[in-house]
């Protein structure tokens, strides 16, 4: 199932300006990641589409991040990464 969100042409500087190597501080990187991704949490959590795979492809492409950076760095609650309230 295709992703209804077009992640190809989005502005990723919200992440790339704050999450930088070589240290990739978790508070900055995970905060930036959530700021970018939380508006699309419903689409990303739907694992029957390609949204999360596509989004991470572009995040890693534009940020030149090592594979698995965010999944290894970011932990909140047992349910997942908590998004700020709207």
């Amino acid at each position: 199932k295709p992703c209804p969100v077009d992640f190809e042409f989005m502005n990723y500087t919200i992440i790339t300006s704050r999450c930088k190597g070589p240290r990739y501080p978790a508070n900055l990187c995970c905060g930036a990641f959530k700021d970018f991704a939380c508006p699309y949490n419903d689409e990303l959590n739907d694992l029957s589409n390609e949204c999360s795979s596509t989004m991470f492809s572009y995040i890693n492409l534009y940020g030149n991040y090592p594979p698995g950076l965010f999944s290894s760095l970011c932990r909140d609650d047992k349910i997942g990464l908590i998004c700020p309230a709207l």
Binding site: A37, C38, N45, N60, S71, I79, G80, L81
Partner: peptide, 20 residues
């Protein structure tokens, strides 16, 4: 209230560049 979150299932897609 509805707490929004990014599931670890979605986050795990960061691990696999070429999932199949």
């Amino acid at each position: 209230s509805n707490q929004r979150y990014i599931s670890y299932g979605a986050l795990s897609k960061n691990n696999v560049p070429c999932s199949r």
